[in-house]
């Protein structure tokens, strides 16, 4: 006999497809914010499913800090080609060159905070009214209160205390000129769900997620990859380790973990046994207890 209920991954998938279709129906010019990380890859995969047999009706937008893993860029370009989608790149380097933002100074300088200006500029110049992100509520405490459809004012800012109530599956995407929305189709997914889904759907992801040998340094409690952008102090030492990344971002701040998980089965097993959150290796979240909320208010992802 047929069972008339869904297992939880099917239910999450169906919910995400519903959200993506709502975005398409309610907005004029939505894009997927594509970082090359697993969450935005999953969102892109879901968009493909949501509109099949039509092509993905969204452009992919990449906010490029200029400090990339080369593997991520290649992955992005291959995927764009496969989907036949349009790529929009917002360049942090250009924002710096134009004097829109100034580079941070010192050893722990990153371009993380600078991305916000580039993102908002790209949203404005491309007349984007909804940016679809791979944000999940389990990632971080400020994100736990995000809506599926999240309003941004005409300065691109999030007002967490004055969010529109979101009931049932009735999403309100109405906005005034100059405002925009962020949409989060995988809000209700956890890191474990994302990995189980990648495995089930056999979704290709950048090789960086699998254990590999890499030159790294130990900084702020995780293995930071060696790159041309990294400034070492005299006590830091470059070593070669077998590592993999749990999240992918700017190469200067994305920490890896030591691991032997070189295939999806092993990754799922490893994640299930993890005792630290994935963002625990992200220097950007460690700046203060409310680092994520403060950046999100400004208009961050």
């Amino acid at each position: 006999m047929t069972k008339y209920y869904l297992n939880y991954l099917d239910e999450l998938e169906s919910e995400a497809i519903f959200v993506l279709r709502e975005v398409f129906a309610q907005f004029q010019n939505p894009v997927i914010l594509f970082s090359g990380g697993k969450d935005s890859i999953v969102v892109t995969h879901l968009a493909r499913k949501a509109f099949y047999p039509s092509k993905i009706p969204f452009a992919l937008m990449h906010v490029d800090t200029g400090h990339n893993f080369p593997e991520t860029i290649k992955f992005r370009d291959d995927l764009i080609k496969e989907l036949g989608a349009r790529l929009i790149v917002g360049s942090v380097q250009e924002s710096i060159d134009q004097g829109r933002v100034a580079e941070e100074k010192g050893k722990n300088a990153t371009r993380n905070a600078l991305q916000t200006t580039t993102l908002l500029d790209a949203i404005e110049s491309n007349k984007i009214d909804c940016a679809i992100g791979g944000g999940r509520r389990d990632e971080e405490k400020a994100r736990a209160k995000e809506r599926f459809f999240s309003h941004r004012d005409d300065f691109g800012q999030w007002d967490p205390k004055n969010q529109r109530p979101e009931l049932w599956n009735l999403f309100n995407g109405k906005y005034f000129e100059g405002e925009h929305f962020r949409a989060f189709p995988i809000s209700n997914w956890t890191e474990m769900d994302v990995w189980n889904y990648i495995k089930r759907e056999n979704i290709s992801i950048p090789s960086l997620y699998f254990a590999h040998e890499r030159e790294v340094i130990w900084r702020n409690g995780s293995w930071i990859p060696n790159s041309e952008y990294l400034i070492l102090d005299e006590r830091e030492e470059i070593v070669t380790k077998k590592i993999r990344f749990r999240t992918l971002g700017d190469i200067t701040i994305t920490g890896g973990i030591e691991s032997d998980a070189d295939n999806l089965e092993k990754i799922v097993e490893e994640v299930a046994a993890m005792r630290h959150t994935e963002r625990g290796n992200r220097a950007d979240d460690k700046r203060s207890e409310t680092a994520m909320e403060d950046r999100k208010r400004q208009g961050y992802f």
Binding site: Y8, A144, K145, P160, K161, S187, E289, T290, D294
Partner: peptide, 26 residues
């Protein structure tokens, strides 16, 4: 407790979503 104001005031002012999984359910 999630947002800055709540942590300061010690109250929950909005809906916050939490997740956990057991071998039986999500």
């Amino acid at each position: 407790d999630g947002l800055r104001d709540e942590r300061e005031q010690g109250i929950t002012i909005d809906v916050a979503y939490r997740y956990f999984t057991t071998p039986k359910r999500k």
